[in-house]
Design a binder for these strands. Sequence first.
DNA 1: CCTGGCACTCTCGACCGGTGAGTGCCAGTC
DNA 2: GACTGGCACTCACCGGTCGAGAGTGCCAGG
Lengths: 338, 338
Amino acid sequence: MLSERRLEVLRAIVQDYVGTQEPVGSKALTERHNIQVSPATVRNDMAALEDEGYIAQPHTSAGRVPTDKGYRLFVDRLAGVKPLSKPERRAIQNFLEDAVDLDDVVSRTVRLLAQLTRQVAVVQYPSLTRSTVRHVELLLLAPARLMLVLITDTGRVEQRMVDCPAPISESSLADLRARLNSRVVGERFSEVPRLVQDLPESFDAEDRGTVSTVLATLLETLVEETEERLMIGGTANLTRFVHDFPLTIRPVLEALEEQVVLLKLLGEAKEPGMTVRIGHENVHEGLTSTSVVSVGYGSGDEAVAKLGVVGPTRMDYPGTMGAVRAVARYVGQILAES
Amino acid sequence: MLSERRLEVLRAIVQDYVGTQEPVGSKALTERHNIQVSPATVRNDMAALEDEGYIAQPHTSAGRVPTDKGYRLFVDRLAGVKPLSKPERRAIQNFLEDAVDLDDVVSRTVRLLAQLTRQVAVVQYPSLTRSTVRHVELLLLAPARLMLVLITDTGRVEQRMVDCPAPISESSLADLRARLNSRVVGERFSEVPRLVQDLPESFDAEDRGTVSTVLATLLETLVEETEERLMIGGTANLTRFVHDFPLTIRPVLEALEEQVVLLKLLGEAKEPGMTVRIGHENVHEGLTSTSVVSVGYGSGDEAVAKLGVVGPTRMDYPGTMGAVRAVARYVGQILAES
DNA sequence: CCTGGCACTCTCGACCGGTGAGTGCCAGTC
DNA sequence: GACTGGCACTCACCGGTCGAGAGTGCCAGG
């Protein structure tokens, strides 16, 4: 077990390193932080911390740098979440309130998060799985061709073309529309398949095929769109750490373009509270030198999607976590209002 | 006026430089290309080309590098557009055909273009200005709150919340929906304001305010969404030119995140045919060391939007132009079918 | 007008020694 | 037993030097 002072030394190392981006030595530490022991003592502590794997030296006789394990300890036990200042919070709220639609909310959130944290921001569109149906619309485009529009309570809209096996009349369509909506509006997506199961039977034989086709497309849409979309921004911030560069930035950019990877990343985060994955805790190899801070957000109690930032392991964790949490809250509020 | 051989030398320089990314010298040129004169002669030609401003040396006694002006001449007079191979074309078509909706078409196009050119791809969503209305839907969410959904012939869907000044009945709403659609379906966006102008007058006094509000929101949507959205991809390709890098990549990433800049960039391109903007021809300062190849695409004869790629000035112009043109064509086809 | 030859320039990589930050260890002190 | 001061040691970094190589410009001759 590490003594109180050693933890203090680790905290100081993390803070200094995050600030300067340079390995930190024993002397500098005692000078910059009010540590009441001599450099020699700190050296002993550092040696101990190194034995335990919390810090490491890039090369013999250089300062120490925190390891992933060191950051982990820092985040878990040494650092709090730094709340944003009032003006910052007000700015967030104002900026988000001006959004005109869901796309705008998401895109503003991304920009905001990127700007606040000066890192790469990732925002997932509100999920459909936990959403409920607000309305299903059917439009006749041609005698045997129609468009299915699905509107969710989070304001998301999905559309699909449907080619019908047989022409359908406006009146039958109106009938279908009405019955469909009376059954599914307000229901969760996961409930829909069960609720519409027997619907084709109640139609005339001539329309039954079309009804089945429409329902099949609807169910398909529910499933397909469950695989979420997301928006990223602030990639220019990656260039701020020009140290180990091109080597690192390449795989990160590649990983960011693979939405699947990101979605998995966000998905892995445990539900309540914020998740911080540090360095090699991220399995994707492009992201092993980055940390991901993510959190769920939602219009009510439940999280409907997640957002977060991707940055170097040497990030300002308290600040980043504060920004992520604050943004998530305000986005939730905005969604709840609309 | 430059002699035939000097143009040939310029072409060779551009090709070699694009291939190797290194300044090309007189000796190497005569070896790699079947130029039937000696290096000394080529040197004289190079001196002439340099006087004219087509090439430059990074430092005294290094090889030559094409200038923006040199690339310009190359693109205008020396290079054709390299058509894609049959397998490539088939791959494009197959890949795009699997798209399920407009978002998917755009996102597939971006990925495709990025992969083919190994550069950053930019695809604009089909514009609404030239689009026609396919359907307007109105949904009553609460007594005095409704949702307006606008569906275009390009498959795009926009939604807006409308807060009504007074409650409106389902029947009045149905009436409005029917009249509205009968007037605007099939019409161009630009025509809509004129067509709905006198609509409020035909309603009862109690509903008139609501009708006006709905129409105002509709018109607003038409205007707002005229400012286009776009999707970019392949940013990881920026890291391929690690030479002069971190310096250059930063402003480029920043420019790419500013959609306004990109839209302006695409917008500047002259309508018919492909546009190539080289280096400083791009006014935005972040992009002065890049070239942009763009072209319009559309479902019919008219271009509804543009797409293109952003890469270093030292790009393979014929190949890039070929890929851009091919992709634009196939996307046009896909849009026409849906 | 083209060509071979020649002197010149300039970048690049290797090598080298001095400097300084930082370390580990040890003996001494509280 | 914990802390401290001192000391020898290790490297990364910086600046300068040097040789190699590639490329150029120019000139005289075919």
